[in-house]
Design a protein around this nucleic acid. Structure first.
Lengths: 252, 252
DNA sequence: AGCTATTTTGTGAATTTTTATAATTTTTTG
DNA sequence: CAAAAAATTATAAAAATTCACAAAATAGCT
């Protein structure tokens, strides 16, 4: 890894998460903290980041730029915590499905050094990340391209998903409540149901903030799940609803 | 491998990844770091890359327009001429397949305003371009991701391709001769054959410079094609070989 | 083919840049 | 205010770069 690559990685992490720690970066990149400090100094001179005690913050100017904004909305603290909890459920040499979404992307980012895994996804952002940063085997489901959201839906994707068996299907949700997970895109229903059909274990990884929101179409019922991983702020009402449906719940 | 090929490979890698390390290239190309350095110096003089410590970065002008950059790096003129000729064969409201490759990418770039089309591809670069710049319906075949080249291969992709019918399949080739199109990737054979199986019309769009090069595996015979579009510099030997197989030939 | 001239490539040494370690000072935290 | 964490500084080690020159490959010629 050459110095520039390292700086790009730092920028990416900063863009993704808002702030990053120096020692964390040093460990991730396997270099000394001094090297990171010198990198950060350069990046600060370029105006890309702002140094703060213990790490860097993405400069406001950048974080308001459209491409990064999309990412910004991604890996928050909660999502990373949820993703870390999710890793525990991935067996050695396993084959997993990652649904489209930012929480599943955060999970993908934790798996870059897992050579043993086979990862299947319908999301192009996740695929891009894995293509550039991972050593695992990657499959894309294909299907009709939803340009705006950069993932695939439709019958083609559904068919392929049904023809594979996953040790774990990690499902995401942009909206869920006591009934189940809902989506505004009718074409996504079949895809999500296929992923659940093909998962020997189905885990919903989803921030509590999405609870209570409802979209037009019901993709699947909470009963179809084996486990829900969410964050600790999840409302009592939600916890009760999950318990009633006898689905295991893990809050992190 | 001749020096020019080596530089094209370097450019391709740089285009693909943004930055590339010198020692990495030296190892991949099996030459000394000095040879790479001299190559990079030349490429820098041409303005294609910028030298940085430990490697090169793709020049900003190019990297900000990824679709142009790929074109840029390999004999553009011919490819665009070939692509323009290929457009003639695309019917209104048609469904076409675009094989992975830079000539097919050039074709995709000419189709951005065609709202009537359905385009299917196994190439992620083509898909990305169409996602960002086109108004047509896009499908991706999915399949096993070949990270380095950014396309899909394998049985999954093959199956899907066979289940669709294309008005035209536009095939590419990194190497071809009188026998047919060859590839170094065994997994690509089935994909290419499936595309030809599913094409009501099969057109090879391919620069003459690739003629005479041979890779390990034969993907398909020239006889399987309805038309070959190439550039005018195509050798007499090649023209005769094509005529013998009763395949129409168009030189532009 | 055989020969020379030219270009390209590899090797090793000197130079410069980058990085790691350790000691010291400053800032943060309880 | 004291302990811990972080930042700074200095210096040694490692890596990357440059330069010079010999070896190898290529091209052009008879």
């Amino acid at each position: 890894m050459i110095p520039l690559e390292r700086r790009q990685y730092i920028l990416q992490q900063a863009a993704l998460r808002g702030v990053v720690g120096i020692y964390e970066l040093a460990q991730a990149l396997n270099v000394s903290h001094m090297t990171i400090r010198r990198d950060l100094e350069k990046l600060q001179q370029e105006g890309a980041v702002v140094l703060v005690s213990g790490g860097v913050q993405i400069s406001k100017k950048l974080s308001s730029e459209p491409e990064l904004m999309v990412k910004e909305n991604m890996a928050t603290e909660e999502k990373i915590r949820i993703a870390k909890a999710a890793v525990e459920y991935i067996p050695q040499k396993g084959c997993i499905f990652l649904d489209d979404g930012t929480t599943t992307l955060a999970l993908a980012q934790l798996l870059s050094d897992r050579e043993d895994l086979t990862i299947v996804t319908n999301d192009f952002v996740i695929m891009d990340y894995l293509t550039d940063h991972s050593v695992c085997t990657v499959f894309h489901t294909g299907g009709m391209v939803r340009k705006r959201y950069r993932y695939c839906v439709g019958e083609m994707a559904t068919k392929i998903i049904k023809s594979i068996t996953f040790d774990v299907s990690f499902m995401s949700a942009s909206s869920w409540d006591e009934r189940g997970v809902t989506t505004p895109d009718i074409e996504k229903i079949a895809v999500k149901q296929a992923a659940i059909y093909s998962g020997r274990k189905n885990i919903l990884i989803c921030a509590q903030s999405k609870f209570g929101q409802v979209a037009t179409f019901l993709a699947f019922d909470l009963k179809d799940l084996d486990l829900i991983i969410s964050d600790k702020k999840l409302s009592k009402q939600a916890i009760e609803a999950v318990a009633e449906r006898r689905v295991e719940l893990k809050l992190v």
